[in-house]
């Protein structure tokens, strides 16, 4: 029980900090990006950290959420909350369609997932679908543009995501997922339903990306397919989660706060050294801390939330 309170305490601290941050720092969009990547890194953590399946095409769910939101606003006349639900549903449906990818594993799964995300992008950006998705010409949702409300929605999604990870870390279901990650055959022999477990984790992970994608569409309101399906979202989510350490609550949080903080600091103060500093940081991590920053503590037997 003490562990649960520790995890919950950290989650509440982060959510409260991000909720009050706009009253201290006025670049709300930068804060939004932090909140967005905190959720995305944790969403990726749900599938990769707990089951070991690395989806390089995670942005596919994010883009599906963004376009689900946009289509609901443009064609169904939905308000932002309803459109967010449609965006989330679009991501979950896409995840269901892609469940056969679990026949693959390792690098094959990661690459197939990347190809799937690219396929979704090509469908959305197809000029023949201009009447539906606006094709490659982008959508404009200026009618629902409300940055304060979309920021609040993003913080709510972050709260949901962190609570989900706390539950996974402290529940029997989360334990079964980690058993699948360690050795799916042994887990199955011990009575764990491998297919059911990883499918639920997959859908939850897609749900988070879809919700975040919806809030992104609401926040930026004007975007193109290459914006919503930019591989940068996948890359950042993967790098942030790996940098901090997966299967923990703290790892992805640290990854986002440190790496995305450095990313913005470099980009604003010394952009000419961007590739050098960022590259050095990541190479150092891979060489010296392949299990992420939290491994500095965990390998000494210290439990990290």
């Amino acid at each position: 029980m003490h562990r649960v309170f520790n995890d919950l305490g950290l989650a509440v601290l982060v959510v409260v900090a991000m909720a009050v941050a706009p009253s201290i720092y006025s670049n709300q969009l930068l804060l939004f990006n932090f909140v967005m990547f905190l959720s995305l890194a944790q969403g990726l953590n749900v599938i990769y950290g707990f089951t070991g399946y690395l989806p390089f095409g995670y942005v596919g769910f994010f883009g599906a959420g963004a376009y689900g939101f946009a289509l609901a606003v443009m064609h169904l006349g939905f308000g932002p909350p309803g459109a967010m639900a449609v965006g989330a549903a679009a991501a979950v449906v896409l995840a269901l369609i892609l469940t056969p990818l679990f026949r693959l594993s390792g690098a094959y799964f990661a690459i197939a997932n990347l190809a799937a995300a690219q396929a979704v992008y090509e469908v959305v950006a197809n000029p023949a679908l201009e009447d539906v998705t606006k094709g490659p010409y982008g959508v404009s949702l200026s009618g629902v543009f409300a940055p304060n409300a979309s920021y609040a929605a993003a913080v709510a999604i972050l709260a949901f995501t962190l609570l989900l990870v706390v539950w996974l870390r402290n529940s029997q279901f989360g334990l079964s997922l980690r058993a699948i990650k360690e050795d799916p055959i042994s887990a199955a022999m011990a009575g764990v339903s491998v297919v059911r477990g990883r499918t639920i984790a997959w859908l939850l992970s897609a749900l988070i990306a879809g919700l975040v994608g919806g809030s992104f569409a609401w926040e930026v309101s004007v975007f193109y397919p290459e914006t919503a399906f930019s591989p940068q979202f996948s890359i950042f989510a993967v790098v942030f989660a790996l940098f901090g350490g997966t299967a923990t609550l703290t790892g992805p949080l640290l990854g986002v706060f440190i790496l995305y903080g450095v990313y913005n600091w470099i980009g604003i103060s010394v952009p000419q050294y961007f590739q050098l500093i960022y590259g050095t940081l990541i190479v150092a991590l891979v060489l010296f801390l392949p299990n992420g920053l939290v491994s500095l503590l965990t390998r000494r037997g210290i439990r990290v939330p």
């Binding site: 670049n27 969009l29 930068l30 990006n33 193109y224 914006t227 940068q232």
Partner: peptide, 9 residues
């Protein structure tokens, strides 16, 4: 685009 948006802000 994400970085551009942040920088504009």
């Amino acid at each position: 685009t994400a970085t551009a948006a942040t920088l504009v802000n």
